[in-house]
Amino acid sequence: MKHTISVLVENEFGVLARVAGLFSGRGFNIESLSVAPTLDSSLSRMTIVTRGDDRILEQINKQLNKLIDTVKVIDFTGEDYVERELAMVKVNADESVRAEVLRIADIFRSKVVDVTPRSYTLEVTGAPAKIDAIVELLRPIGIKELVRTGPVVLGRGSKGWKQAE
């Protein structure tokens, strides 16, 4: 089963390697991982998408907590949360398909962020499923390059992490 986990870590040298090493060393799987500093610049927030049964997830959770640099771990499975991913797609825009690409972009409320006579680069945000969908529609037209950030998530409601503790 797929799980999305947020990890608040000390924004220190080598912390990414500790988390990545933990996953690879213990044979846990990482589908995506995104990381950046938080409002408090001494902390970074990682969002990790992983797969595993309950036993594995319990271990992932405990092992992450065991790292000295880990401040907090939240598994969002079963929680109410919003999830967004950003992708940029460089897509073929020959004469015959230029209009079609723009129509698809419009349907997905995506923006054109770079344009050449032969290509459009689209920026699209949304839940990973939405990005999967636009990629499938653009694929027959010819995708030259695709980059995805992996999802980030926040719990719904007015409470933030600090208060939730």
């Binding site: 040298f13 080598g14 390697a17 500790r18 090493g21 060393g25 000295i68």
Partner: peptide
Amino acid sequence: MVGITRPVTKHNYLVK
């Protein structure tokens, strides 16, 4: 050494 010993230490430090 910090890289080599990461999986076999409880924690490790490089003092910069």
